[in-house]
Design a protein around this nucleic acid. Structure first.
Lengths: 170, 170
DNA sequence: CTAGTCATGTCAACATCACTGACGTATTGT
DNA sequence: ACAATACGTCAGTGATGTTGACATGACTAG
Protein backbone atom coordinates (compact mmCIF):
# COMPACT_ATOMS: atom_id res chain seq x y z
CA UNK A 1 0.00 0.00 0.00
CA UNK A 2 1.07 3.53 -0.65
CA UNK A 3 3.87 2.35 -2.89
CA UNK A 4 4.98 4.78 -5.56
CA UNK A 5 4.66 3.38 -9.05
CA UNK A 6 6.54 4.97 -11.88
CA UNK A 7 4.12 6.65 -14.29
CA UNK A 8 4.63 7.31 -17.95
CA UNK A 9 5.72 10.92 -17.56
CA UNK A 10 8.27 10.04 -14.91
CA UNK A 11 5.83 11.23 -12.28
CA UNK A 12 5.35 8.88 -9.36
CA UNK A 13 1.91 7.30 -9.40
CA UNK A 14 0.31 6.07 -6.21
CA UNK A 15 -1.68 2.97 -5.67
CA UNK A 16 -4.53 4.42 -3.67
CA UNK A 17 -7.13 2.26 -2.00
CA UNK A 18 -10.66 3.50 -1.46
CA UNK A 19 -9.96 3.15 2.22
CA UNK A 20 -7.01 5.54 2.11
CA UNK A 21 -9.04 8.05 0.16
CA UNK A 22 -11.93 7.77 2.61
CA UNK A 23 -9.59 8.61 5.45
CA UNK A 24 -8.55 11.74 3.62
CA UNK A 25 -12.18 12.66 3.05
CA UNK A 26 -13.01 12.27 6.72
CA UNK A 27 -9.89 14.16 7.74
CA UNK A 28 -11.06 17.09 5.61
CA UNK A 29 -14.50 16.96 7.19
CA UNK A 30 -13.33 16.93 10.79
CA UNK A 31 -10.48 19.37 10.23
CA UNK A 32 -12.73 21.94 8.57
CA UNK A 33 -14.93 21.84 11.63
CA UNK A 34 -11.97 22.75 13.78
CA UNK A 35 -10.85 25.31 11.27
CA UNK A 36 -14.07 27.31 11.55
CA UNK A 37 -14.82 26.60 15.21
CA UNK A 38 -12.92 29.49 16.80
CA UNK A 39 -14.22 32.32 14.61
CA UNK A 40 -17.72 30.84 14.84
CA UNK A 41 -17.56 31.07 18.62
CA UNK A 42 -16.57 34.73 18.44
CA UNK A 43 -19.24 35.57 15.89
CA UNK A 44 -22.15 33.78 17.50
CA UNK A 45 -22.55 36.46 20.15
CA UNK A 46 -22.88 39.19 17.55
CA UNK A 47 -25.46 39.15 14.80
CA UNK A 48 -22.81 37.88 12.38
CA UNK A 49 -22.05 34.51 10.90
CA UNK A 50 -19.52 32.75 8.73
CA UNK A 51 -20.50 34.74 5.67
CA UNK A 52 -19.53 37.97 7.43
CA UNK A 53 -16.22 36.45 8.42
CA UNK A 54 -15.41 35.53 4.84
CA UNK A 55 -16.26 38.98 3.55
CA UNK A 56 -14.18 40.64 6.26
CA UNK A 57 -11.27 38.31 5.61
CA UNK A 58 -11.05 39.01 1.91
CA UNK A 59 -11.65 42.74 2.24
CA UNK A 60 -8.77 42.78 4.70
CA UNK A 61 -6.75 40.67 2.33
CA UNK A 62 -7.37 42.88 -0.68
CA UNK A 63 -8.22 46.39 0.51
CA UNK A 64 -10.06 48.42 -2.10
CA UNK A 65 -11.43 45.35 -3.82
CA UNK A 66 -14.66 45.78 -5.74
CA UNK A 67 -17.95 44.06 -5.14
CA UNK A 68 -17.62 42.11 -8.37
CA UNK A 69 -14.16 40.88 -7.47
CA UNK A 70 -15.40 39.73 -4.09
CA UNK A 71 -18.28 37.92 -5.79
CA UNK A 72 -15.79 35.95 -7.85
CA UNK A 73 -13.70 35.01 -4.84
CA UNK A 74 -16.56 34.04 -2.57
CA UNK A 75 -18.56 32.32 -5.29
CA UNK A 76 -21.96 33.48 -4.12
CA UNK A 77 -24.71 35.52 -5.73
CA UNK A 78 -24.69 39.28 -5.46
CA UNK A 79 -27.92 39.13 -3.47
CA UNK A 80 -26.25 36.96 -0.86
CA UNK A 81 -23.14 39.10 -0.68
CA UNK A 82 -25.16 42.29 -0.64
CA UNK A 83 -27.10 41.21 2.41
CA UNK A 84 -23.83 40.70 4.27
CA UNK A 85 -22.16 43.87 3.02
CA UNK A 86 -25.22 45.95 3.85
CA UNK A 87 -25.08 45.02 7.52
CA UNK A 88 -21.30 45.40 7.69
CA UNK A 89 -21.49 48.87 6.17
CA UNK A 90 -24.46 49.87 8.33
CA UNK A 91 -22.58 48.74 11.42
CA UNK A 92 -19.54 50.75 10.42
CA UNK A 93 -17.15 47.85 9.89
CA UNK A 94 -16.71 48.30 6.16
CA UNK A 95 -16.52 51.45 4.06
CA UNK A 96 -17.68 51.61 0.46
CA UNK A 97 -16.29 54.37 -1.74
CA UNK A 98 -17.13 55.23 -5.33
CA UNK A 99 -14.41 54.33 -7.81
CA UNK A 100 -12.06 57.00 -9.13
CA UNK A 101 -11.59 55.74 -12.67
CA UNK A 102 -14.86 53.86 -12.94
CA UNK A 103 -17.59 55.49 -10.90
CA UNK A 104 -19.79 52.40 -11.14
CA UNK A 105 -17.42 50.45 -8.95
CA UNK A 106 -17.41 50.51 -5.17
CA UNK A 107 -14.12 50.00 -3.39
CA UNK A 108 -14.35 48.19 -0.08
CA UNK A 109 -12.15 48.84 2.93
CA UNK A 110 -12.25 47.85 6.57
CA UNK A 111 -12.78 50.68 9.05
CA UNK A 112 -10.86 50.76 12.32
CA UNK A 113 -13.72 48.90 13.93
CA UNK A 114 -13.79 46.36 11.12
CA UNK A 115 -10.04 45.85 11.29
CA UNK A 116 -10.34 45.22 15.03
CA UNK A 117 -12.89 42.48 14.49
CA UNK A 118 -10.80 41.01 11.69
CA UNK A 119 -7.84 40.85 14.01
CA UNK A 120 -9.71 39.04 16.75
CA UNK A 121 -11.10 36.56 14.24
CA UNK A 122 -7.88 35.83 12.44
CA UNK A 123 -5.87 35.73 15.66
CA UNK A 124 -7.99 32.83 16.82
CA UNK A 125 -7.77 31.05 13.49
CA UNK A 126 -4.07 31.67 13.07
CA UNK A 127 -3.37 30.36 16.53
CA UNK A 128 -4.96 27.04 15.72
CA UNK A 129 -3.12 26.96 12.41
CA UNK A 130 0.17 27.76 14.09
CA UNK A 131 -0.29 24.96 16.62
CA UNK A 132 -1.18 22.49 13.89
CA UNK A 133 1.78 23.54 11.75
CA UNK A 134 4.18 23.22 14.66
CA UNK A 135 2.83 19.83 15.62
CA UNK A 136 3.16 18.52 12.09
CA UNK A 137 6.47 20.05 11.06
CA UNK A 138 7.70 21.90 7.95
CA UNK A 139 7.68 18.95 5.57
CA UNK A 140 4.09 18.11 6.47
CA UNK A 141 3.08 21.75 6.00
CA UNK A 142 4.47 21.83 2.49
CA UNK A 143 2.58 18.64 1.66
CA UNK A 144 -0.57 19.99 3.23
CA UNK A 145 -0.51 23.04 0.98
CA UNK A 146 0.30 20.96 -2.10
CA UNK A 147 -2.62 18.59 -1.63
CA UNK A 148 -5.05 21.41 -0.85
CA UNK A 149 -4.06 23.29 -3.97
CA UNK A 150 -4.49 20.18 -6.06
CA UNK A 151 -7.95 19.73 -4.63
CA UNK A 152 -9.27 23.13 -5.75
CA UNK A 153 -11.42 23.82 -8.77
CA UNK A 154 -9.50 25.56 -11.53
CA UNK A 155 -11.19 28.89 -10.94
CA UNK A 156 -10.57 28.78 -7.21
CA UNK A 157 -6.94 27.80 -7.75
CA UNK A 158 -6.62 30.85 -9.96
CA UNK A 159 -7.94 33.12 -7.20
CA UNK A 160 -5.75 31.36 -4.67
CA UNK A 161 -2.56 31.71 -6.68
CA UNK A 162 -3.26 35.35 -7.47
CA UNK A 163 -3.58 36.08 -3.76
CA UNK A 164 -0.81 33.89 -2.47
CA UNK A 165 1.70 35.31 -4.92
CA UNK A 166 1.18 38.80 -3.58
CA UNK A 167 4.06 39.47 -1.17
CA UNK A 168 2.20 40.70 1.89
CA UNK A 169 -1.44 40.78 0.94
CA UNK A 170 -1.74 44.41 -0.13
CA UNK B 1 11.52 31.80 6.23
CA UNK B 2 10.21 28.35 7.02
CA UNK B 3 13.45 27.44 8.70
CA UNK B 4 13.18 24.75 11.34
CA UNK B 5 14.42 25.86 14.74
CA UNK B 6 15.35 23.25 17.28
CA UNK B 7 12.89 23.32 20.18
CA UNK B 8 13.52 22.31 23.76
CA UNK B 9 12.06 18.83 23.47
CA UNK B 10 14.02 18.06 20.37
CA UNK B 11 10.93 18.85 18.35
CA UNK B 12 11.46 21.16 15.39
CA UNK B 13 9.83 24.53 15.94
CA UNK B 14 8.86 26.66 13.01
CA UNK B 15 9.15 30.35 12.61
CA UNK B 16 5.74 31.04 11.15
CA UNK B 17 4.81 34.42 9.78
CA UNK B 18 1.22 35.61 9.78
CA UNK B 19 1.51 35.64 6.02
CA UNK B 20 2.34 31.95 5.84
CA UNK B 21 -0.51 31.13 8.15
CA UNK B 22 -2.91 33.23 6.11
CA UNK B 23 -2.00 31.26 3.02
CA UNK B 24 -2.86 28.07 4.84
CA UNK B 25 -6.18 29.54 5.92
CA UNK B 26 -7.05 30.54 2.39
CA UNK B 27 -5.93 27.19 1.04
CA UNK B 28 -8.35 25.49 3.42
CA UNK B 29 -11.16 27.78 2.31
CA UNK B 30 -10.70 27.25 -1.41
CA UNK B 31 -9.90 23.56 -1.13
CA UNK B 32 -12.99 22.81 0.93
CA UNK B 33 -15.07 24.36 -1.82
CA UNK B 34 -13.58 21.93 -4.31
CA UNK B 35 -13.93 19.11 -1.84
CA UNK B 36 -17.71 19.50 -1.61
CA UNK B 37 -18.34 20.67 -5.17
CA UNK B 38 -18.84 17.30 -6.87
CA UNK B 39 -21.30 15.77 -4.37
CA UNK B 40 -23.14 19.10 -4.22
CA UNK B 41 -23.66 18.97 -7.97
CA UNK B 42 -25.10 15.46 -7.75
CA UNK B 43 -27.38 16.34 -4.86
CA UNK B 44 -28.75 19.62 -6.14
CA UNK B 45 -31.08 17.86 -8.55
CA UNK B 46 -32.66 15.80 -5.79
CA UNK B 47 -34.28 17.29 -2.74
CA UNK B 48 -31.11 16.57 -0.76
CA UNK B 49 -28.21 18.69 0.42
CA UNK B 50 -24.90 18.41 2.15
CA UNK B 51 -26.50 17.32 5.42
CA UNK B 52 -27.98 14.27 3.71
CA UNK B 53 -24.61 13.47 2.21
CA UNK B 54 -22.93 13.55 5.60
CA UNK B 55 -25.54 11.29 7.15
CA UNK B 56 -25.29 8.81 4.28
CA UNK B 57 -21.50 8.85 4.44
CA UNK B 58 -21.27 7.99 8.10
CA UNK B 59 -24.07 5.43 8.03
CA UNK B 60 -22.19 3.73 5.22
CA UNK B 61 -18.98 4.07 7.21
CA UNK B 62 -20.43 2.57 10.37
CA UNK B 63 -23.42 0.39 9.47
CA UNK B 64 -25.75 -0.20 12.38
CA UNK B 65 -24.70 3.00 14.12
CA UNK B 66 -27.22 4.56 16.47
CA UNK B 67 -28.82 7.98 16.23
CA UNK B 68 -26.93 9.17 19.29
CA UNK B 69 -23.62 8.05 17.88
CA UNK B 70 -24.33 9.86 14.66
CA UNK B 71 -25.24 12.98 16.62
CA UNK B 72 -21.82 12.94 18.25
CA UNK B 73 -20.02 12.52 14.94
CA UNK B 74 -21.95 15.14 13.03
CA UNK B 75 -22.12 17.62 15.87
CA UNK B 76 -25.64 18.85 15.23
CA UNK B 77 -28.83 18.83 17.29
CA UNK B 78 -31.10 15.85 17.20
CA UNK B 79 -33.81 18.00 15.66
CA UNK B 80 -31.57 18.80 12.71
CA UNK B 81 -30.45 15.24 12.23
CA UNK B 82 -33.96 13.92 12.64
CA UNK B 83 -35.25 16.08 9.82
CA UNK B 84 -32.63 14.60 7.52
CA UNK B 85 -33.08 11.02 8.69
CA UNK B 86 -36.85 11.28 8.38
CA UNK B 87 -36.65 12.11 4.68
CA UNK B 88 -33.95 9.50 4.03
CA UNK B 89 -36.03 6.80 5.73
CA UNK B 90 -39.25 7.93 4.03
CA UNK B 91 -37.48 7.82 0.65
CA UNK B 92 -36.20 4.32 1.35
CA UNK B 93 -32.50 5.13 1.42
CA UNK B 94 -31.95 4.33 5.08
CA UNK B 95 -33.46 1.65 7.31
CA UNK B 96 -33.98 2.09 11.03
CA UNK B 97 -34.28 -1.02 13.18
CA UNK B 98 -34.95 -1.32 16.89
CA UNK B 99 -31.94 -2.39 18.94
CA UNK B 100 -31.58 -5.97 20.10
CA UNK B 101 -29.94 -5.46 23.46
CA UNK B 102 -31.25 -1.99 24.10
CA UNK B 103 -34.64 -1.51 22.53
CA UNK B 104 -34.45 2.27 22.91
CA UNK B 105 -31.75 2.47 20.27
CA UNK B 106 -32.32 2.55 16.53
CA UNK B 107 -29.71 0.99 14.30
CA UNK B 108 -29.24 2.70 10.96
CA UNK B 109 -28.32 0.98 7.71
CA UNK B 110 -28.27 1.97 4.07
CA UNK B 111 -30.73 0.17 1.82
CA UNK B 112 -29.70 -0.93 -1.67
CA UNK B 113 -31.00 2.38 -2.97
CA UNK B 114 -29.12 4.30 -0.31
CA UNK B 115 -25.92 2.40 -0.99
CA UNK B 116 -26.26 3.24 -4.69
CA UNK B 117 -26.48 6.96 -3.93
CA UNK B 118 -23.58 6.70 -1.50
CA UNK B 119 -21.50 5.11 -4.21
CA UNK B 120 -22.19 7.80 -6.76
CA UNK B 121 -21.42 10.51 -4.21
CA UNK B 122 -18.22 9.01 -2.89
CA UNK B 123 -17.03 8.00 -6.34
CA UNK B 124 -17.05 11.65 -7.36
CA UNK B 125 -15.36 12.78 -4.17
CA UNK B 126 -12.79 10.02 -4.21
CA UNK B 127 -11.91 10.75 -7.78
CA UNK B 128 -11.02 14.33 -6.91
CA UNK B 129 -9.09 13.13 -3.88
CA UNK B 130 -7.23 10.57 -5.95
CA UNK B 131 -6.24 13.16 -8.53
CA UNK B 132 -5.04 15.54 -5.84
CA UNK B 133 -3.10 12.81 -4.06
CA UNK B 134 -1.43 11.72 -7.26
CA UNK B 135 -0.52 15.25 -8.22
CA UNK B 136 1.00 15.94 -4.82
CA UNK B 137 2.79 12.65 -4.17
CA UNK B 138 3.02 10.32 -1.17
CA UNK B 139 5.14 12.55 1.04
CA UNK B 140 2.75 15.45 0.59
CA UNK B 141 -0.21 13.19 1.36
CA UNK B 142 1.30 12.10 4.65
CA UNK B 143 1.90 15.73 5.58
CA UNK B 144 -1.61 16.67 4.52
CA UNK B 145 -3.13 14.11 6.88
CA UNK B 146 -0.81 15.12 9.71
CA UNK B 147 -1.72 18.80 9.54
CA UNK B 148 -5.43 18.10 9.22
CA UNK B 149 -5.39 15.84 12.25
CA UNK B 150 -3.54 18.48 14.26
CA UNK B 151 -6.18 21.02 13.27
CA UNK B 152 -9.13 19.09 14.71
CA UNK B 153 -10.83 19.72 18.02
CA UNK B 154 -10.04 17.04 20.56
CA UNK B 155 -13.48 15.51 20.37
CA UNK B 156 -13.42 15.36 16.57
CA UNK B 157 -9.93 13.89 16.59
CA UNK B 158 -11.25 11.19 18.86
CA UNK B 159 -14.04 10.35 16.42
CA UNK B 160 -11.58 10.50 13.54
CA UNK B 161 -9.03 8.17 15.12
CA UNK B 162 -11.71 5.71 16.18
CA UNK B 163 -12.91 5.48 12.60
CA UNK B 164 -9.57 5.58 10.84
CA UNK B 165 -8.16 2.79 12.98
CA UNK B 166 -10.88 0.44 11.90
CA UNK B 167 -9.41 -1.73 9.13
CA UNK B 168 -12.07 -1.47 6.47
CA UNK B 169 -14.80 0.64 7.90
CA UNK B 170 -17.05 -2.10 9.22
C1' DC C 1 -41.39 -1.72 42.23
C1' DT C 2 -41.00 3.14 41.82
C1' DA C 3 -38.40 6.90 40.36
C1' DG C 4 -35.08 8.70 37.49
C1' DT C 5 -32.44 8.65 33.44
C1' DC C 6 -31.76 7.62 28.62
C1' DA C 7 -32.72 7.28 23.42
C1' DT C 8 -35.62 8.75 20.31
C1' DG C 9 -39.15 11.39 17.88
C1' DT C 10 -41.77 15.49 17.21
C1' DC C 11 -43.89 20.30 17.26
C1' DA C 12 -43.17 25.17 17.01
C1' DA C 13 -40.57 29.21 16.24
C1' DC C 14 -36.74 31.41 14.53
C1' DA C 15 -32.02 32.80 12.28
C1' DT C 16 -28.51 32.33 8.72
C1' DC C 17 -27.25 31.70 4.34
C1' DA C 18 -27.87 30.32 0.01
C1' DC C 19 -30.70 30.48 -4.44
C1' DT C 20 -33.75 32.44 -8.69
C1' DG C 21 -35.97 36.07 -11.01
C1' DA C 22 -37.02 40.67 -11.81
C1' DC C 23 -36.33 45.57 -11.84
C1' DG C 24 -33.99 50.16 -11.31
C1' DT C 25 -30.05 53.46 -11.64
C1' DA C 26 -25.90 55.22 -12.79
C1' DT C 27 -21.92 54.83 -15.64
C1' DT C 28 -19.07 53.37 -19.39
C1' DG C 29 -17.85 51.99 -23.93
C1' DT C 30 -19.10 51.25 -28.88
C1' DA D 1 -28.10 56.64 -29.12
C1' DC D 2 -27.60 52.06 -27.41
C1' DA D 3 -25.80 48.10 -25.21
C1' DA D 4 -23.18 46.38 -21.62
C1' DT D 5 -21.45 46.79 -16.96
C1' DA D 6 -21.49 47.46 -11.76
C1' DC D 7 -24.25 47.79 -8.23
C1' DG D 8 -28.37 47.73 -5.22
C1' DT D 9 -32.79 45.97 -4.00
C1' DC D 10 -37.42 43.51 -3.56
C1' DA D 11 -39.84 39.25 -3.25
C1' DG D 12 -40.07 34.43 -2.73
C1' DT D 13 -38.15 29.93 -1.61
C1' DG D 14 -35.35 26.23 0.38
C1' DA D 15 -31.75 23.86 3.23
C1' DT D 16 -29.68 23.82 7.49
C1' DG D 17 -28.97 25.05 11.79
C1' DT D 18 -30.63 26.61 16.59
C1' DT D 19 -33.61 26.62 21.38
C1' DG D 20 -37.28 25.02 24.05
C1' DA D 21 -40.85 22.01 25.24
C1' DC D 22 -43.12 17.70 25.43
C1' DA D 23 -44.18 12.53 24.80
C1' DT D 24 -43.08 7.65 24.68
C1' DG D 25 -40.99 3.64 25.74
C1' DA D 26 -37.04 1.22 27.81
C1' DC D 27 -33.53 0.62 30.91
C1' DT D 28 -31.51 1.07 35.70
C1' DA D 29 -30.59 2.20 40.38
C1' DG D 30 -32.61 2.66 44.84
Amino acid sequence: MNQPIQGQSGQALLFLTDDQLRKGIEAMFFAYRGFTADPDRILEDMAYGRAHHRAIHFIHRSPGTTVNNLLGILGVTKQSLNRVLRTLIADGLVSSTVGHRDKRERHLHLTEKGAALERSLSDAQRERMRTAYRAAGPVAVAGFRQVLEAMMDDEMRHHYRAMVDKPDGR
